[in-house]
Design a protein around this nucleic acid. Structure first.
Length: 910
RNA sequence: GGGCGGUUAGCUCAGUCGGUCAGAGCGCCUCGCUUACACCGAGGAUGUCACUGGUUCGAGUCCAGUACCGCCCACCA
C-alpha cells in the first residue's frame, strides 16, 4: 500500500510504471517475473511491424492497444504470452522517404550510387528505429523487447533466401518476361496491389491509319482508304503492331487481313480480327500495342505479334527511331497529336472518363511495360489459404471479411516479387552467360551454375530485390527463427491472433497465409482480427497532406496513454472505421480520473482498526449487509460480462461494461452506500471493517478487469490497496478474476431501493424543492424486504435527503392518515414500494401544480404502457402463438402497470 | 461492372438469440462548492430506428427491393 497523490497526473504515473515492468522482467513469456502456468497453451501475437522510417500515428496506437489488451488478458489468465515486436524495412516506402530527403539536399539515388545509398539508408533507419520503438513503449506495449525483430536482420535475410529457394525448387517461383506495372518515378515495377485506380477525365482521340495497297505494297493512293482507331494514349502509336476489329463487325470485315501503315514509325501492320474488341466502343477498331497495354499484350500473344518497347525506365520515349525519342511521354503525346492534326489524320477528340493506374507510393501514372521479373505462382498457394479459412482452422473477424478474402484469393494473379530498388533483400538468383538460372539460399551464393557448372565468379547475381511484402509474408515464423527448428518456433507457432488493419488484408495477411502454409505446412495463426481505420472527427482519412494527423505522443503527453487506449478501444468495432476526436479522449481521461479518485477514497477511508500495511482479508460474511452483498454481486456480474465480451473479441463492449460498472454502479452507489457505514462510528468495528474489505475486494476486481485496457493507472492504483498473500507484486502478472456468484435477491431488492431514491430525487427536482432540504418521508416497504430496507435506511435517508423516514408495512397504511398529511406531499411508486415525502408549503404554493403535473405525466405514460400491454393480452393470436414465458411476462407486466395506474390515480384524486 | 459495409437523439456511436431495446457518451436545459472526484454530483428534454414491401402473434433486429454515404475488387482502347 502506498499513498496516492491527490491529483491524477498520467505523466507521473506512466513512465515509472513501465520501468517497473521492465525491471521485473514480466513481458517475456520466459521472463523471471512471469507467473504463467506452463500447462496452459501459449498465447502469441506477432505485431504487424511498423515501417522503420515511418512515424507512429493513431492507427499504430490502436493496433498496439488492441494487441496489448489481448496479451495482457491472456497473461493474467496464466498463459505464456509472447508479444513479439518488430520493425519493417519497408523497402519502397523507406526509399520514397529517403529519396525525398536526398532531393532536398540536391542529391538522388542515382547520384549516390547503390552502395552509398544503402549506407545512407542504414544510417537513416538506425536513427528512426529508436523513435518508433519508444513510441510503442509510451503506448504501453507489454512486448518482449528481447525478441525484437527486424525484417532486415540476418534471421529474416536467411528466411527470405531459404523461402525463395524452396519456392523455386517447388516450381512456385519463376522468372519470365511479362507485362508489369512500371512506376517511372520509383523506377521499379510494382505489384497489382500497389496500383491505385484513379478515375480521371482524359481524352479519346480518333486517329486515321492509312491502308496499304496490297498490290503495290505502297500506301493506298485513295486518301479515304483508312481505318480509324480510338486511343487515349497516342504516344503508344509508336509501338503499334496491329489493328484489331471484332470478327463479326460488318463495317470492317473487308479490311481484316489488310495492312495499315503506322504513322511516324512507318511500320506496316495487319488488321486482325479478335473478339476482345468491343464494337460499340470508340470506332470499333483498336490499335494494338503489345508492350504497353495488358489487353494488347494478350492479343499480341494470341496473334503472335511483335512487341516493341517504346518507353525507357523514366517514361521517356526511346528506341522508336523517331524524333520523339528522348521526350517525356506526355510531351511526346502532345507533339504526336499535333502532328496527326497537321497531317489531317486526327479524326476526332473528345473528353473521356477513364480509370488511370497510379503508383500507391509516388502517385505517378504507371506504365505497363515488358520486363523480365520473378513471380510467385499464387494459384496453388491461394487454394491452401482458402482451405484454411473454409475449414475454420483460421478464423477471420469480422466474419464479413471472409467474402472479400474468398473473392480475392479465388481470382488471384501471380505475384510479381522483384523490385528494381536497392533497399531490401537481394534476390538470391544468379545467371550465367548462357542464361542459366541458379537459385541458392547460401549466404555466399552458389558455388557453380546449376545449368553448366560455371564457377561462381562467372555468375552474376540478379540486381533486383524482393517486394517488401515478401519478407513480411514470412514474418510469423521468420521472427521465431524459421527455417531453423528453434524452441520458439516449436512453442509459439502457429500464433494465436493476427491483429492488423483491414487495409492490408491482401498485402500482408493473405501473403502470410499463403507462404506460411506452403513453407511450414501450418496456418500461421488461428484468428485474424481486422481492425478498422482511424478517421478524423469529420470522417476523413488521416493524412499528412490533409494536415489532420493526430500524433499519439502528443495525446499521451496531454491525457495519458491509458486514456488514449481506452478511447481507441472504446470506439473500435472490428473492421469498422472509427472517427476520433477530443471528446472521446476527454471522456476516457475523465474515467481514469474517476477511478483514481474512487481508489483514493477507498484507500483514505480505511478504518483505523486496520493497519495501513494489512494484507488482504476476505470480508466476514456475517458482517456483510445488503449494500456489501450488492457490491459483491455486481462485481461478480461484471466479471462475467467482461469474460463474455472478451470471448467474443468485443473489446469495445469490455470498455462499456467496465465504464458503466465502475462509474454508475461502484462509484455512484457502492461508494455512497459504504460512506454511511464507514462514517458511522457507532457501528461495530467488524461491520465497518467488512464494509471496507468489500470495497477493496470490488475495487481489486475492477482494477484487474480494467488492466488490459488501462494498464498504467490500474497498476498504480492496485499498488495502493492491500494485496492478497498469494498475489504477485505487480498487477500485470496477477490473476484474472473469476466470477464469485450472484445474489439475485439482493440485486433485486437493492435495485428497487435505488429506483425509489431516484424517484424521490426526481420528484424533488420537479417540484422545485431546495437541494439541501431534508423531507420527512413515509415509505411503504413490504415485510419481505424489511431487513434490506432497515439495513439501508441510513443510506436511503442520506441519498434521497429523506429524514426522518417512517416505515409502513403496506401502502394502505401509508394512506390511512392521508387527511392529516401536510399539503405538498411528493409521491413515488416503484413496484411494491411507495414513498411519500412531506414538505411544509402553503396550500396555494405553485409547486403543488408541479408535483401534480409530474404525477400526471407519469400516469399518462403508465396508461400508455398499460393499454399496449392489454392490447397484447387481448390479441388471440398472441395468446395462442407466443411462448408461455412471454405471455406470463406480459400478464405480470399488465398487473404491475394496472397497480401503478391505480395508485397514481388515487394519488391524484387526493 | 461486381462485392462489402453503413444509415438509430443536435454530434459520435451501442443495441447479442425477434418479445422492458428506445440506449450510452458528448452537447443542451435546471439545480448543487454534500470532506473521493467540478476531469464532479442530482435531475431533465430530445427519436417516422433511411425508405417501401414481405415473413411473424410480435421487426432497429429476419427476408426482398429502393435511396443515399463510404470502401474494396475489376484489362473496355
Amino acid at each position: 500500500m502506498s499513498d496516492l497523490p491527490k491529483t491524477y497526473t498520467p505523466r507521473d504515473v506512466e513512465g515509472p510504471i513501465y520501468e517497473r515492468w521492465l525491471a521485473a522482467d514480466v513481458f517475456a513469456p520466459d521472463g523471471t517475473g512471469s507467473t504463467a502456468d506452463p500447462a496452459l497453451p501459449p498465447f502469441t501475437i506477432i505485431q504487424p511491424p511498423p515501417n522503420v522510417t515511418g512515424s507512429l500515428h493513431l492507427g499504430h496506437a490502436q493496433r498496439t492497444a488492441v494487441e496489448d489488451l489481448m496479451i495482457r488478458h491472456a497473461r493474467m489468465r496464466g498463459h505464456r504470452t509472447l508479444f513479439l515486436p518488430g520493425l519493417d524495412h519497408a523497402s519502397i516506402a523507406a526509399q520514397f522517404v529517403l529519396d525525398g530527403i536526398l532531393a532536398r539536399e540536391g542529391e538522388s539515388r542515382q547520384s549516390l550510387g547503390r552502395e552509398a545509398y544503402l549506407e545512407r539508408m542504414r544510417a537513416f533507419s538506425d536513427s528512426t528505429k529508436p523513435v518508433m520503438l519508444g513510441q510503442q513503449r509510451r503506448v504501453g506495449a507489454s512486448a518482449d523487447w528481447g525478441r525484437l525483430r527486424y525484417t532486415m536482420d540476418e534471421v529474416s535475410a536467411k528466411a527470405v533466401r531459404v523461402a525463395f529457394e524452396r519456392l523455386y525448387r517447388d516450381g512456385l517461383a519463376y522468372r519470365t518476361e511479362a507485362l508489369v506495372n512500371w512506376c517511372p518515378g520509383c523506377r521499379t515495377s510494382v505489384s497489382d496491389l500497389e496500383v491505385v485506380s484513379t478515375p480521371e477525365t482524359g481524352t479519346l482521340w480518333s486517329v486515321r491509319y492509312h491502308l496499304i495497297d496490297e498490290g503495290s505494297g505502297a500506301l493506298d493512293p485513295d486518301p479515304g482508304a483508312t481505318i480509324t482507331v480510338a486511343t487515349t494514349r497516342p504516344e503508344t502509336i509508336l509501338g503499334d503492331t496491329a489493328v484489331a476489329v471484332h470478327p463479326d463487325d460488318d463495317r470492317y470485315r473487308a479490311l481484316v487481313g489488310r495492312r495499315v501503315r503506322i504513322p511516324f514509325v512507318d511500320r506496316d501492320v495487319r488488321v486482325i480480327a479478335d473478339d476482345v474488341v468491343d464494337r460499340a466502343f470508340g470506332t470499333g477498331a483498336v490499335k494494338i500495342t503489345p508492350a504497353h497495354d495488358p489487353d494488347d499484350y494478350a492479343t499480341g500473344k494470341r496473334h503472335d505479334l511483335p512487341a516493341p518497347t517504346i518507353l525507357a525506365d523514366d517514361a521517356t520515349v526511346a528506341d522508336t527511331g523517331t524524333r520523339y525519342d528522348g521526350l517525356d511521354r506526355y510531351e511526346a503525346r502532345r507533339r504526336i497529336v499535333d502532328a496527326l492534326r497537321e497531317r489531317g489524320d486526327l479524326a476526332g477528340e473528345r473528353p473521356h472518363e477513364m480509370v488511370i493506374g497510379r503508383c500507391q507510393r509516388s502517385n505517378d501514372v504507371l506504365e505497363p511495360r515488358l520486363k523480365t521479373q520473378w513471380f510467385i505462382r499464387t494459384a496453388p498457394l491461394a487454394a491452401r489459404a482458402l482451405e484454411a479459412t473454409r475449414s475454420g482452422r483460421t478464423r477471420i473477424l469480422p466474419e464479413f471479411f471472409e467474402k472479400t478474402w474468398e473473392h480475392w484469393l479465388t481470382d488471384i494473379r501471380d505475384w510479381n516479387v522483384s523490385r528494381q530498388l536497392w533497399w531490401g533483400h537481394r534476390i538470391p538468383a544468379w545467371y550465367c552467360a548462357d542464361g542459366h538460372v541458379t537459385v541458392s539460399a547460401d549466404p555466399s551464393g552458389p558455388a557453380t551454375c546449376d545449368g553448366c557448372d560455371r564457377p561462381a565468379d562467372q555468375l552474376t547475381q540478379d540486381p533486383d530485390i524482393f517486394d517488401t511484402w515478401f519478407s513480411s509474408g514470412l514474418w510469423p515464423f521468420s521472427t521465431l527463427g524459421w527455417p531453423d527448428a528453434t524452441p520458439d518456433l516449436a512453442t509459439y507457432y502457429p500464433t494465436s491472433v493476427m491483429e492488423t488493419g483491414y487495409d492490408i488484408i491482401f498485402f500482408w495477411v493473405a501473403r502470410m497465409m499463403m507462404l506460411g502454409l506452403q513453407l511450414t505446412d501450418r496456418e500461421p495463426f488461428h484468428t485474424v482480427y481486422l481492425s478498422g481505420l482511424i478517421r478524423d472527427p469529420e470522417g476523413q482519412k488521416m493524412s499528412k497532406t490533409k494536415g489532420n494527423v493526430v500524433d499519439p505522443l502528443g495525446v499521451i503527453d496531454e491525457t495519458g496513454a491509458d486514456a488514449l487506449r481506452f478511447a481507441l478501444i472504446h470506439g473500435a468495432a472490428p473492421g469498422q472505421d472509427q472517427r476520433f476526436g477530443v471528446t472521446k479522449l476527454e471522456n476516457a481521461r475523465n474515467f481514469a480520473n474517476k477511478l483514481w479518485n474512487a481508489t483514493r477514497f477507498v484507500v483514505g477511508s480505511r478504518p483505523p482498526t486496520i493497519p495501513a500495511d494489512a494484507t488482504r482479508r476476505v470480508p466476514d460474511p456475517a458482517h456483510l449487509g445488503p449494500a456489501e452483498r450488492w457490491i459483491r454481486s455486481r462485481a461478480s456480474a461484471t466479471v462475467a460480462e467482461v469474460d463474455a465480451a472478451m470471448a467474443d473479441h468485443a473489446f469495445a463492449e469490455v470498455t462499456r461494461v467496465l465504464y458503466d460498472a465502475i462509474w454508475n454502479e461502484f462509484c455512484d452507489w457502492g461508494l455512497e452506500f459504504a460512506k454511511v457505514h464507514l462514517a458511522d462510528e457507532s457501528l461495530p468495528t467488524a461491520t465497518r471493517e467488512a464494509t471496507w474489505w468489500t470495497l477493496v475486494e470490488a475495487l481489486d476486481t475492477y482494477l484487474r478487469l480494467l488492466h488490459p485496457v488501462m494498464p498504467f493507472v490500474t497498476e498504480a492504483l492496485w499498488e495502493a490497496i492491500p494485496r492478497r498473500p498469494t498475489d504477485p507484486a505487480l498487477l500485470i502478472v496477477s490473476r484474472w478474476p473469476a466470477p464469485s456468484g450472484r445474489d439475485e435477491r439482493i440485486e433485486a431488492e437493492v435495485g428497487s431501493l435505488l429506483e425509489l431514491i431516484r424517484g424521490l430525487r426526481n420528484a424533488r427536482a420537479a417540484a422545485g424543492v431546495e437541494a439541501s432540504a431534508w423531507l420527512e418521508t413515509e415509505i411503504a416497504v413490504p415485510q419481505s424486504m424489511g431487513a434490506t430496507f432497515e439495513a439501508l435506511r441510513p443510506a436511503v435517508e442520506r441519498l434521497a435527503r429523506a429524514k426522518p423516514i417512517e416505515r409502513r408495512l403496506t401502502r394502505e397504511a401509508l394512506h390511512e392518515d392521508r387527511p392529516g398529511r401536510p399539503p405538498g406531499a411528493l409521491t413515488v411508486i416503484v413496484g411494491d414500494l411507495e414513498a411519500v415525502a412531506h414538505r411544509a408549503v402553503a396550500a396555494d404554493d405553485a409547486s403543488h401544480e408541479l408535483e401534480r403535473g409530474r404525477l400526471e405525466r407519469e400516469l399518462a405514460a403508465a396508461r400508455g404502457y398499460l393499454d399496449a400491454a392489454r392490447a397484447r393480452l387481448a390479441d388471440r393470436a398472441f395468446m395462442e402463438k407466443a411462448p408461455p414465458a412471454i405471455v406470463d411476462g406480459a400478464r405480470a407486466r399488465e398487473a404491475e402497470l394496472a397497480e401503478q395506474v391505480a395508485r397514481l390515480e388515487d394519488r391524484l384524486r387526493g
